[in-house]
């Protein structure tokens, strides 16, 4: 009788310890391992940014047109000329930092904010821009159009 009474709370206490220990161990390990497993899954976007970026795929862009792409934290402008050559420049206007665009009708780069115009070499030809646009290197890798920051001479 006496032994029974003391045995009852003892087993329930052991149960509690087992629950806390087992549950805690499993739950804590799960909460440590879950982020690690998710971390191991490579993200869909492989591009790192930096000094090189895949601006577009061949065929994404029609001749005599331009496309804005992201280059690090700034926009870039990729242009496909009629003769099939690519050209990439910084798309940040040197006047007040608006994003420039390619004007197929003018064959020039145009900033809508204050009508600044650059030629395809990035030179500021009219309007308020004080400096030329930075020109990037473009080359093809497979069907990817890769843009590089020019190495400073």
């Amino acid at each position: 009788m006496c032994a029974d009474q003391t045995a009852q709370p003892k087993t329930s206490r052991r149960r509690a310890i087992e629950l806390f220990l087992g549950g805690g161990l499993l739950a804590s390990l799960a909460s440590f391992i879950y982020p690690v497993l998710r971390f191991l899954v490579p993200p869909a976007v492989i591009d790192l940014g930096g000094d090189e970026v895949v601006a577009a795929k061949v065929g994404d862009i029609k001749p005599n047109s331009g496309k804005i792409f992201r280059f690090g934290s700034r926009p870039g402008l990729l242009i496909l000329n009629n003769d099939g050559t690519y050209r990439a420049l910084s798309a940040t206007c040197t006047h007040l930092g608006c994003t420039v665009q390619y004007r197929p009708d003018l064959r020039e780069i145009w900033c809508a904010c204050h009508n600044g115009i650059y030629d395809l070499n990035g030179r500021n030809v009219s309007g308020p821009p004080p400096r030329p646009l930075t020109v990037f290197d473009v080359h093809l890798r497979g069907d990817e159009i890769v843009v590089n920051r020019k190495r400073e001479a």
């Binding site: 982020p35 690690v36 998710r38 971390f39 191991l40 899954v41 490579p42 993200p43 976007v45 790192l48 940014g49 930096g50 000094d51 090189e52 690090g72």
Partner: peptide, 28 residues
């Protein structure tokens, strides 16, 4: 190490990539 790339041109970007693109990269 699975994502980090040493080198002046890539190091910062790869850490940024870990923090922004990789799931739970910010946490690790």
């Amino acid at each position: 190490l699975l994502y980090y790339r040493p080198g002046a041109n890539e190091a910062f970007e790869s850490v940024q990539y870990i923090v922004t693109r990789v799931q739970f990269g910010w946490l690790i």
